[in-house]
């Protein structure tokens, strides 16, 4: 895995992205940088455009205007398959796992290895076990157990392992901890750190500021379809992120601070 975050060319760079749905302008002139070896948290209130933005990167949506650069090259990502060919994998909130299939079958779904047109189960099982071991996902009893029998955190881990299996360089996660309890959240956040330590770029959508500050190296905040700030996580305080999320950053001026406090209350409701 290359670590280009430090030497200039970011893994992925989106510039001037516009995306509208009918009368609704979901994204306006959004810039986003996702460096390798770093976790970027994408924050924003409901309707800020977080999901639309990552879907533009993942190939689900086509931006109306704007350009995406992958390792410095301008690219057009027309569908999920093209995204994964580049090395972009997305873990959606609903995880997209089949409960009736086992862990190995889920991890290889759609990309099964075959020998003489017969599924090469042993080979797939070995590769799946290696990936899970590298991510230190060790709590599952057997990688041949159906995914329906796993806990929420284990399911999330399988979904992440499925995403990184394919030499992916960028993993996008949509609310990875939204449905999890405390212990399982810790487990998934550790997994995110491990991905970063292996040199992958990670983008996380999250509402949960605890999670954001626990893992993020960088924070990008969207407000009503505009990117209002994108900086090192250490430059933020919890309060400032909330201000950006709810007011779009007007609150940084002395005059706005008063207004913003009121809006914060409304925004959290």
């Amino acid at each position: 895995m290359s670590d280009q975050g430090s030497n200039g060319v970011p893994l992925l760079k989106a510039e001037g992205i516009y995306k509208g749905f009918g009368a609704v302008q979901a994204l306006s002139d959004v810039n986003l940088t996702l460096p390798a070896g770093q976790v970027t948290a994408i924050c924003g209130d409901n309707g800020a455009g977080k999901s639309v933005l990552i879907k533009c990167i993942a190939g689900i949506h086509q931006p109306d205007r704007g350009q995406i650069y992958w390792e410095g090259r301008p690219v057009r990502i027309r569908n999920a398959r093209e995204a994964s060919l580049l090395g972009i994998e997305t873990v959606y909130q609903d995880l997209a796992l089949s409960d009736n299939l086992d862990i190995v079958q889920n991890m290889f779904l759609g990309r099964e290895r075959v020998r003489h047109r017969i599924l090469d189960e042993d080979d797939m099982e070995r590769a799946a076990a290696e990936t899970l071991a590298a991510l230190r996902v060790t709590t599952v009893q057997s990688i041949r157990q159906p995914v329906g029998s796993l806990s929420g955190g284990q399911r999330q881990s399988v979904a992440v392992a499925k995403a990184v299996m394919w030499n992916s360089k960028l993993v996008i996660m949509d609310e990875p901890t939204a449905a999890l309890g405390v212990t399982q959240t810790t487990m998934v956040l550790e997994l995110v750190r491990r991905l970063r330590d292996q040199g992958l770029g990670v983008a996380i959508i999250s509402h949960n500021l605890n999670d954001v500050f626990a893992v993020a190296d960088r924070i990008a905040v969207l407000h009503l379809g505009r990117m209002v700030v994108e900086q090192e996580a250490s430059t933020f305080s919890r309060q400032s992120v909330i201000e950006y999320m709810t007011t779009g950053g007007l609150g940084l001026t002395e005059v706005g601070a008063h207004l913003m406090n009121q809006e914060t209350k409304n925004g959290e409701g």
């Binding site: 409901n46 309707g47 977080k50 806990s151 609310e175 449905a179 999890l180 309890g181």
Partner: peptide, 17 residues
């Protein structure tokens, strides 16, 4: 369209603390 069902899944596994 944004944020499909961010709460829909919370019911599912909240018991798995």
């Amino acid at each position: 369209k944004v944020d499909p069902g961010s709460s829909a899944h919370e019911v599912q596994t909240t018991t798995t603390a």
